[in-house]
Design a protein around this nucleic acid. Structure first.
Length: 519
RNA sequence: GGCGCUUUCGUCUAGCGGCUAGGACACAUGCCUCUCACGCAUGGAACACGGGUUCGAUUCCCGUAGGCGCUACCA
């Protein structure tokens, strides 16, 4: 049974915050693993010691905790195949590099970066391969004693993979089918650097995937061109029969313009490209995150899942568990998807409104605090209830749940501000005010205020009984002008609801202010 | 430049030889209404182009064009 056990991995490089595209890759790996009852491994690919960024690893872990994507083994999760941090696997890689060297599948090269740079300057389209390797300083061209001497003297070197030209290498991709690349266009990739005693991605990747018994490699399309190299490496090690299956995912593209999604796009268009807010330890620069922007993790996950995959029907709202059931690599699209952050907000809107009242109160409370308003818990609950009733939760005549109008809890402030803050003034240019505050409005409001003064039961119902009758008798429609008094604009809930919430005293105070100001 | 991947409404996509080319987001209009929304209804909107294969191509094949990626001692 162990031969059919699915094992996949997500292996980020701790060079900064986790990109949203990486989140989607991890998500697909997660869905695939869960669906097959397999394991998801979290591996840290820190083979480039120069690009290491402190805090990045913790950030990535925290991101997945927030998103609800759970790993089965790896850094921070334990497991039988560790260590899971590549910088802690130096001895392992050394062993496998020496195997390749011993079998003649790889060789040692002493060319310095400067020498290579010079060569590239001289020769157009220079590539370190079968056509050029014999002109370079390596163990193929140098005598064995010379090689040994150089190493003994401490000269830095790299190990390069010896690629035999002229062979069509086929990668059988689960999304794209058979992809063929001729080995002649591949260069003798650097597999290992003596400078930091670490392998490069390619070697570490193959060795780890093999040792960790990974069965499926699900990664971004940017890896497709080097997939043939990886196939060749599996063969060189004699692991061709246990080579994992590949699936190369389409990339996430910029919402506007050309190219793949980058950090810059988010800054420019005002949406996050990272799951969590990130504070760069070097520059001190802050990048916004979905969590801090008020996104719900389910919304982010749902939105991301549908960027490059669909369940084959019209269903869009899906929980993680549902996605696990429905996910299918065969249904992944092959072309890149533009990142539609407007739709991301729509998903958040949907999930936000599914939340129970209790979930709103603390968020709403935080919003009030931010605005410097310290309301009583009763009042908050009252407002939340009212907002859910009049603005947020809407049920039509057939009892169907309908879409509502906020995408983020922070959207609530402009919609509820008037519950807490009286209008400070009125914009006479405002369309609603111009249209609804007429010459008679002042007098009508004055009369209405007097009527309200007499209302004993100031609940919405109590007011309605008295005021509706009065309105009928007067033959006027005072609501919009009244709304201007209490709200200062053309928005908000039912007027009786609102005035009941404000209370008699505040209601009349606001009316008087409006009468004085607007005349 | 070379190599590879890719191409259906503005965007995400359904479609796996025969459909009035479907849905969602966004947009527009109308209805509802004490306002803003919500909701409901309606509408505009796509098979990149050229060759084949076939009785028949959005669908299969080949070109062309566009897009994307890779082309480091980065992942």
């Amino acid at each position: 049974m162990s031969t059919t056990n699915v094992r996949v991995r997500f292996a980020p490089s701790p060079t900064g915050p986790l990109h949203i595209g990486g989140v989607r890759t991890a998500l697909y790996n997660y869905l695939f693993a869960r669906q097959h009852g397999g394991q998801l491994i979290f591996r840290i690919e820190d083979t480039d010691s120069t690009r290491f960024v402190p805090g990045a690893e913790e950030y990535i872990l925290e991101s997945f905790r927030w998103l609800g994507i759970r790993f089965d083994e790896g850094v921070g999760f334990g497991g039988e195949h560790g260590p899971y941090r590549q910088s802690e696997r130096r001895e392992i890689y050394k062993e496998y590099v020496s195997r390749l060297l011993a079998s003649g599948k790889a060789y040692i090269a002493f060319d310095t970066p400067e020498e290579l740079e010079a060569k590239r300057g001289q020769v157009e389209n220079f590539q370190y391969d079968a056509g050029t390797r014999l002109q370079m300083r390596n163990s193929l061209t140098l005598a064995k004693e010379e090689v040994d001497r150089l190493i003994a003297e401490g000269h830095q070197y790299v190990v390069r993979f010896l690629i035999e030209p002229g062979e069509d290498v086929v990668v059988d991709d689960m999304i794209r089918g058979k992809v063929t690349i001729n080995s002649s266009i591949l260069d003798d990739k650097v597999l290992y650097k003596s400078a930091d005693e670490l392998p490069t991605y390619h070697l570490a990747n193959i060795v780890d995937d093999h040792l960790m018994e990974v069965t499926h490699v699900i990664r971004g399309e940017e890896w497709l061109p080097s997939a043939p190299l990886h196939v060749l490496l599996y063969r060189a090690f004699g692991w061709a029969d246990t080579m994992p299956r590949f699936a190369h995912l389409p990339l996430l593209l910029k919402p506007v313009g050309n190219g793949k999604l980058s950090k810059r796009d988010g800054d420019k268009l005002g949406f996050p490209v990272f799951p969590l807010e990130w504070h760069d330890p070097k520059s001190g620069e802050v990048s916004s995150g979905y969590r801090e922007k008020g996104y719900l993790p389910q919304a982010v996950v749902n939105f991301l899942a549908l960027l490059g995959w669909n369940p084959g029907n019209d269903q869009e709202m899906m929980s993680l568990d549902e996605m696990v059931k429905l996910f299918d690599l065969e249904k992944c699209s092959k072309n890149g998807a533009k990142f539609d952050y407007v739709k991301a907000a729509w998903f958040n809107h949907q999930y936000l409104l599914q939340q129970p009242d209790e979930a709103w109160v603390p968020r709403f409370d935080a919003l009030l605090q931010q605005q410097g308003i310290h309301s009583t818990p009763e009042k908050e609950a009252d407002v939340v209830r009212m907002m859910k009733q009049k603005v947020v939760e809407y049920t039509d005549g057939q009892g169907n749940k309908k879409k509502r109008n906020i995408s983020f809890v922070s959207d609530l402030w402009p919609l509820t501000k008037f519950f807490f803050v009286a209008p400070a003034g009125f914009d006479r240019e405002d369309k609603f005010i111009r249209k609804n505050w007429t010459e008679t409005s002042g007098a009508e409001m004055k009369a209405l205020a007097e009527v309200l003064q007499t209302v004993g039961d100031f609940s919405a119902e109590g007011q309605k009984q008295v005021v509706d009758a009065w309105v009928e008798q007067q033959g006027i429609r005072p609501w919009n002008a009244w709304r201007i008094c209490l709200v200062g604009a053309g928005q908000g809930p039912d007027m009786y609801e609102l005035s009941a919430h404000l209370g008699k005293e505040e209601t009349i105070r606001r009316m008087q202010f409006a009468i004085e100001t607007l005349g």
